[in-house]
């Protein structure tokens, strides 16, 4: 199914620096995506509820000040809600020694400061295609 990616851009934890998440959200919109944007400090339970109800393909979590440390909790909550097929990406300041822990927890990709916005958008398009192919297996045959 060729449709616009639907992406949730959010921030969990305590930090409130949202310049990055706002720039990314605006860029994805301009790249033709439908972006559900939240302010910082979302509770993990609320992120899961949003992801379920909005039926998003990709979740982007922005973290600048150590909030990435609770991303594994988010991943567990998503699995619990049967949302393992959603691609989760993390953007922001993630020290090298923590990156592997995030990937091990099921995060699809970590984008560090300086990542071009085009790269992020291109990755989301790719990830969406994978998610959609799994969700709507019969569709390519139909269309």
């Amino acid at each position: 199914m060729k449709t616009r990616p639907k992406v949730l851009i959010t921030k969990i934890g305590l930090d409130g620096h949202d310049r990055g998440s706002r720039i990314v959200a605006a860029h994805l919109r301009d790249a033709g995506m439908e972006v559900v944007y939240t302010p910082p400090w979302q509770e993990i339970g609320n992120v899961v509820k949003l992801a379920v109800e909005e039926d998003v393909d990709v979740i982007g979590v922005s973290s600048l000040a150590t909030d990435h440390l609770i991303v594994p909790k988010l991943m567990a909550a998503l699995r619990e809600a049967d949302l393992s097929d959603v691609a989760v990406i993390v953007g922001g300041i993630v020290p090298d020694e923590d990156e592997q822990a995030l990937l091990d927890a099921g995060v699809a990709r970590v984008f560090h400061p300086g990542s071009p916005l085009e790269d992020i958008a291109a990755y989301i398009v790719e990830a969406t295609a994978r998610v959609r192919a799994a969700r709507f297996p019969a569709l390519d045959a139909i269309r």
């Binding site: 616009r4 959200a25 605006a26 994805l28 919109r29 301009d30 790249a31 033709g32 995506m33 439908e34 972006v35 559900v36 944007y37 939240t38 302010p39 509770e43 339970g45 609320n46 509820k49 949003l50 909005e54």
Partner: peptide, 18 residues
């Protein structure tokens, strides 16, 4: 122009959405 959208209304609906 691009067909993209920022879907922000549910956030403006505040805490009740949870």
């Amino acid at each position: 122009i691009t067909g993209g959208a920022v879907l922000g209304d549910r956030i403006r609906m505040g805490s009740s959405g949870g």
